[in-house]
Amino acid sequence: MIEQIVTSFLAAVLIENFVLVRFLGICPFLGVSKKIKTAWGMGIAVVFVMALASAFTWLIQKYVLESFNIEFLQTITFILVIAALVQFVEMVIKKTSRTLYNALGVYLPLITTNCAILAVCIINVQKGFDLVNAILYGTFAGIGFTLALILFAGIRERMDLFSNIPENLKGFPISLISASLVSLAFLGFQGLIK
């Protein structure tokens, strides 16, 4: 059991990292990675929503889509569920924990349209996970996303401070180039487990 969890953790965080290997959720990856602090906020929000969305979409898939034989509606249903869920979570957090709400801030509603969340839910179904494994996979995928975001934010912070970047590459271009290099580095994790 523990071995399985560790394997799944390594797979989701390093080997099949959502951002750097699967290239999902690139928009927040580039948009919210200017500072490590905001990267943390976004990362935590994503972990949170991914875990919750995994659970809910798993239930919907099992008890609504499969029982009515309408699996082809998976994408649109999941988007609906995720959007509603994020709204709901935002309200609950606003009411219950002001500190958490302020920490997540604008990133929570941003996640609604993050393709990485939808991908987690669909992969859960494709791999035939049970509920517990689905939630675990969602959490791990979120952690992988956070790791990528924070790594990249660190790189960008240092780059802004210490590097002498050619005028034409400043800003977005150099970010794209360094993102591809980070992605190449993560390619090295392929074959870590069989």
Partner: peptide, 18 residues
């Protein structure tokens, strides 16, 4: 009709819930 109905119902349920 089934597909539209289910998505519609889900939408309404989520809407009311929210």
């Amino acid at each position: 009709i089934l597909a539209a109905a289910i998505i519609g119902i889900m939408g309404i349920v989520f809407g009311i819930g929210l």
